Simulated scan of single mutants.
Amino acid sequence: MASQRFQDMLGRNEKFVETYTMPPTLQQIKDNAPPGRGTMAIISCSDPRVCPEEFLGIKRGEALVIRNAGGRAVEAIRSLEVMGTIGAIQLIVVIHHTDCGGLFTCDDEVRRKLGERAPEHKHLIENKNFGTFQEIGIRQSILDDVEVIKNWKFLPEYTEVKGFAYTIEDGKLTELV
């Protein structure tokens, strides 16, 4: 049961707390950042098999990691807007992955299944974009998301944007943009 699995995680948290050290505060990070050096943001999928902290070896405080279904830029913009007002973001990296659920469904299928689950609320999703990319594939979804970010009205002029594909089968990252 999921509830029991979460109880197990809570037990792991108790062990984690035993050796926990608080990270620097946001103010400390801002005060101690070398001149001209901001942070980076990684946008990736919420798939539990895909952990940027793991496959990029990200240390605590080293990068913002924004995760959502499919790793879609449109969903990440709100987080970039908020975090970008706290500190400079110099690099934004979009990472989509092989064997992603976004490749195995389409927006119409998501609408149909949600409509079956709650028919009385079907009108709330009839025009909603769910960001699936079965029709366009992983390469095009990355290219599209990099463009979304490059066209974002609040993108700082000094911020670089890159796009990568993560191959879940072998753990490799391939730069596309």
Rank of each mutant, 00 (worst) to 15 (best):
3 S>V: 14
3 S>H: 15
5 R>L: 12
7 Q>V: 14
8 D>Y: 04
10 L>P: 06
10 L>A: 09
10 L>G: 10
12 R>I: 05
12 R>Q: 01
15 K>A: 11
16 F>K: 08
16 F>Q: 11
18 E>L: 15
18 E>H: 15
19 T>H: 13
20 Y>R: 10
21 T>I: 13
24 P>W: 13
25 T>L: 03
25 T>E: 02
28 Q>E: 10
29 I>L: 09
29 I>F: 06
30 K>V: 15
31 D>V: 10
31 D>F: 09
32 N>D: 14
33 A>M: 11
33 A>I: 07
33 A>L: 11
37 R>I: 13
40 M>W: 10
41 A>I: 05
42 I>R: 01
43 I>T: 02
46 S>T: 10
49 R>H: 08
50 V>Y: 00
55 F>N: 03
65 V>D: 04
66 I>V: 10
68 N>W: 02
69 A>E: 01
69 A>R: 06
70 G>L: 04
70 G>M: 05
74 V>W: 02
77 I>D: 00
78 R>C: 04
80 L>Q: 00
80 L>S: 02
83 M>L: 15
83 M>W: 15
84 G>T: 06
85 T>G: 14
87 G>P: 15
91 L>G: 05
93 V>G: 00
96 H>S: 04
96 H>K: 10
97 H>L: 03
98 T>C: 05
103 L>H: 04
103 L>V: 12
103 L>S: 07
104 F>V: 15
105 T>K: 12
108 D>S: 15
109 E>W: 07
109 E>T: 14
110 V>F: 01
111 R>L: 02
111 R>K: 04
111 R>F: 07
116 E>A: 12
124 L>N: 09
125 I>G: 08
125 I>Q: 09
128 K>P: 12
128 K>H: 13
129 N>I: 13
129 N>W: 09
130 F>K: 06
132 T>G: 04
132 T>C: 13
132 T>F: 06
133 F>D: 01
133 F>C: 06
133 F>L: 03
133 F>T: 10
134 Q>R: 14
134 Q>I: 15
135 E>F: 09
135 E>R: 10
136 I>K: 01
138 I>D: 09
140 Q>Y: 05
141 S>L: 03
142 I>E: 00
143 L>F: 06
143 L>E: 04
144 D>I: 08
145 D>Y: 00
151 N>Y: 00
151 N>M: 05
151 N>D: 09
152 W>Y: 12
152 W>N: 02
152 W>P: 00
154 F>G: 11
155 L>P: 02
155 L>V: 08
157 E>F: 07
158 Y>A: 14
162 K>P: 03
163 G>K: 05
166 Y>C: 12
167 T>Y: 14
168 I>F: 11
170 D>C: 03
171 G>D: 03
171 G>T: 06
172 K>W: 11
174 T>Q: 11
176 L>P: 06
177 V>P: 10
